[in-house]
């Protein structure tokens, strides 16, 4: 297997985004070296539509909404918390598809980090400001860096 082909099999999180209940961006971080950040902002913005369409379409009883859409070679996954916060994870599509359970676990971790953030009494979850908490950003970074480690060892 060539190096490029091997790299292609790696699943990478390219972006993590948190969108507020008023569909306002609260956190969008680009973890990809190749994609322009602006693109992720557009993708995150578009996800709001697809999440809304998805929750209107059928009665969902799970926060994990699965693969929302694909734009170019980026797969956008969505998660909706009970407080209507939207978590978006964008993966660069690889040959090995990701299991839904695996994605769900990652979302749960991000949700956990977000829960820690809003447990801070000085944090106002209703403000439309972007999240600047370093512990939150570090928490998300850690999730991104440790996800799909099995894939790496496998490849």
């Amino acid at each position: 297997m060539s190096l490029t082909a091997a790299l292609n099999t790696l699943t990478k999180i390219s972006c993590v985004a948190i969108i507020g209940k008023m569909n306002n961006p609260m956190f969008i971080k680009n973890y990809s070296n190749e994609v322009d950040e602006l693109k992720f902002h557009y993708l995150a913005n578009i996800s709001c539509d697809l999440i809304e369409a998805k929750i209107n379409q059928t009665k969902y009883n799970d926060s994990y909404l699965g693969l929302l859409y694909i734009m170019e070679d980026l797969a956008v996954y969505g998660y909706l918390t009970n407080t209507k916060m939207k978590i978006i994870i964008i993966l660069t599509i690889s040959i090995n598809p990701v299991k839904d359970m695996e994605m769900k676990q990652i979302f749960k971790k991000v949700h956990g980090v977000y829960s820690n953030l809003i447990s801070n009494p000085f944090y106002d979850p209703d403000s439309r400001n972007t999240i600047t908490s370093t512990s939150f950003i570090k928490g998300v970074d850690k999730i991104v860096n440790t996800s799909f480690q099995n894939d790496v060892s496998y490849s």
């Binding site: 859409y69 694909i70 734009m71 170019e72 797969a75 599509i93 598809p97 990701v98 299991k99």
Partner: peptide, 18 residues
């Protein structure tokens, strides 16, 4: 139990974008 992005059909609009 996998949603394979390689085998995922979306609305026509996305293909028009492509």
């Amino acid at each position: 139990n996998i949603t394979d992005p390689n085998m995922f059909i979306q609305q026509a609009g996305f293909y028009y974008i492509l």
